[in-house]
Every structure is written in structure tokens, then in C-alpha cells.
Amino acid sequence: MIQLEKEVKKVASVLKLVGDKTRLTVIGLLLKRECCVCELVEVFEMSQPSISQHLRKLRDAGLVKERRKGQWIFYSLNRESESYPLIEMLLKHIPDQQEKLDALEAEGKRICCD
């Protein structure tokens, strides 16, 4: 019984985290490819600290991974996370985010941090 409660609590925590529209969209983008913070700032038209805060929450929950390249940090979906099957299922119910990545590339802003 206690194990079941722990599992429910874990799932509820992930659902609460991705219940935020920005974080859910970030996860959808990261399903396609890794992104630098600067790219996400352009996509969402939000401040870098705000995007970094969303990414920190996702990273702390183990849903995303980060990779440093010089002074830049690139984020990707953590497919090894125990919550990945839930995330994968949820992403099937949101629109594909490729259009946002294509627009970023068309504007010449795909990787503005190299």
C-alpha cells in the first residue's frame, strides 16, 4: 500500500511539473532535438532567467539533461528517466513542436550561441 502511494505521488509530481504550458512545450521541443537556452528564449520570447528557471525544475526532476559546450548549456530530454514513459505518452497528446524549431532555423536563430 505504501509503495502504491509513493508511485501515485511520483506521477502526480511529474504531472504537476508538466502541467505548466511552457514546461510542457519545452519537453515537446526537446523530444525533437537538444536546445540551448538562447534558442528557447527566442522560441518563447521570454527572458533567459525565466527559461532557465523552467529548465532547472525539469532538470531537478530528472526529466531533462544538460550538456555544457563552452559557456553554453544545451538541454535534451532524459530518455533514461523512470518518468520517460509517462512523458512520452503525454507528448502524444500535444501538437508537434517541429514548426517552432523550423521557424527558429528560418530566422537564422537555430544556434546563436556557437
Results as ranks from 00 to 15, higher is better:
Met1Phe: 14
Val8Thr: 13
Val8Gln: 14
Lys10Phe: 03
Val11Ala: 01
Ala12Gln: 10
Ser13Asp: 12
Lys16Trp: 14
Leu17Met: 03
Gly19Met: 08
Asp20Asn: 13
Thr22Leu: 07
Arg23Ala: 03
Leu24Pro: 00
Leu24Phe: 08
Thr25Arg: 08
Thr25Asp: 07
Thr25Asn: 06
Ile27Met: 05
Ile27Trp: 00
Ile27Ser: 01
Gly28His: 02
Leu29Lys: 05
Leu29Glu: 08
Leu30Ala: 04
Lys32Val: 14
Glu34Ser: 15
Cys35Met: 12
Cys35Gln: 03
Cys36Tyr: 10
Val37Gly: 09
Cys38Lys: 04
Cys38His: 05
Glu39Gly: 08
Leu40Trp: 07
Val41Asp: 03
Glu42Leu: 04
Glu42Arg: 10
Val43Phe: 02
Val43Glu: 00
Val43Lys: 04
Met46Gly: 06
Ser47Trp: 10
Ser47Leu: 03
Ser50Glu: 10
Gln53Lys: 14
Gln53Leu: 11
His54Tyr: 03
Leu55Tyr: 07
Lys57Pro: 01
Asp60Gly: 04
Ala61Ser: 13
Gly62Cys: 06
Glu66Phe: 09
Arg67Phe: 09
Arg68Lys: 13
Lys69Pro: 06
Gly70Asn: 09
Tyr75Thr: 07
Ser76Ile: 06
Leu77Asp: 00
Arg79Trp: 05
Glu80Ala: 12
Tyr84Leu: 01
Leu86Glu: 04
Ile87Leu: 06
Glu88Asn: 12
Leu91Val: 09
Lys92Leu: 12
Ile94Gln: 12
Lys100His: 14
Leu101Arg: 00
Leu101His: 05
Leu101Thr: 02
Asp102Met: 03
Ala103Gly: 15
Gly108Leu: 00
Cys113His: 05
Cys113Ile: 04
Asp114Gly: 14
